[in-house]
């Protein structure tokens, strides 16, 4: 494949932009990866197994849920089903991002790296310019390596880390997502969406339990946005 100099330069700039934008989520993922690795170790998974889970599944929420179900031998069907449910939000995310992403023939490969964080940043980027493959990989590469690396450290260090709640590490994920939501704020309509999604998800979490709250909340937010929009006016 020949790449002309100008486009190579542009791609390099896009890649660097991606690597710069992913930095806050990357830092926030450090304690989460450590805690994940430590839980894996406590559940009897080897360091290699924990690393493979992070490298092949690469979906924090589903991985944490799987540690709850993990046993020897592992219940494969329950694990696959729980993973499918928790990650069902990816379908909505992909449908939304597809309209903005310019990944070309690489699409079926690079969607593997779609996680909440880089997807949210791609959506933010899409407000000002198209989301290029170089930008996407600039976010994905460091974020992916970071997630695997801290999983390995956590699984290796295991119990030495102590209770993550003492350092507020368990809250880093929540705070990160609050910051990401703020990036999408477009006034009252976002407020309606956030209120509907948050309250519905909390209620579903209390009644049906996890992971149904993710889908329930996401759909409630979408319905609220649709119901409060004025027809024809955008």
């Amino acid at each position: 494949m020949t790449v002309t100099a100008p486009s190579r330069t542009r791609a390099a700039v896009e890649f660097r932009d991606g690597a710069r934008d992913i930095l806050p989520p990357l830092v926030a993922a450090i304690p989460i990866g450590l805690v994940y690795g430590a839980i894996c170790a406590a559940k009897g998974m080897s360091v290699l197994e924990a690393a493979l889970a992070s490298a092949l599944v690469f979906a924090g929420g589903a991985q944490f849920a799987a540690t709850e179900l993990w046993a020897s031998p592992p219940p494969v069907l329950a694990l696959a089903l729980s993973t499918l449910l928790i990650n069902a939000r990816h379908v909505l995310m992909g449908a939304s991002l597809k309209r903005k992403a310019r990944f070309g023939a690489a699409t079926p490969f690079v969607v593997f790296w779609m996680a909440d964080e880089n997807w949210a940043l791609a959506e933010r980027r899409a407000a000002t310019r198209p989301v290029t493959l170089a930008y996407w990989l600039g976010m994905a590469a460091p974020f992916y390596v970071n997630w695997i690396a801290w999983t390995v450290v956590g699984a290796g260090a295991g119990a030495l880390l102590g209770d993550p709640a003492r350092f507020g590490a368990d809250f880093a994920f929540t705070a990160l997502f609050i910051g990401l939501v703020a990036g999408f704020w477009k006034g009252r309509s976002t407020g309606v969406t956030v209120a509907a999604a948050g309250v519905t998800a909390a209620l579903v979490y209390r009644t049906l339990g996890s992971p149904w709250h993710v889908l329930g909340g996401a759909f409630a937010g979408m319905v609220a946005a649709a119901a409060t929009t004025r027809g024809g006016v955008r």
């Binding site: 929420g61 939000r89 909505l92 995310m93 449908a95 939304s96 909440d116 997807w119 949210a120 959506e123 809250f171 994920f173 929540t174 997502f177 609050i178 990401l180 939501v181 999408f184 704020w185 309509s189 976002t190 969406t193 956030v194 509907a196 999604a197 948050g198 309250v199 519905t200 998800a201 909390a202 979490y205 209390r206 996890s210 709250h213 993710v214 889908l215 329930g216 909340g217 996401a218 759909f219 409630a220 937010g221 979408m222 319905v223 609220a224 946005a225 649709a226 119901a227 409060t228 929009t229 004025r230 027809g231 024809g232 006016v233 955008r234």
Partner: peptide, 26 residues
């Protein structure tokens, strides 16, 4: 339609809030 468009545009915030709602509110 405009309503569907609004629903689509709400996806990012709705998904992110739904994921953290247990920590936020419960």
């Amino acid at each position: 339609s405009p309503r569907m468009q609004a629903a689509f545009e709400a996806i990012p915030a709705a998904v992110l809030v739904a994921v953290i709602a247990p920590s936020l509110l419960a």
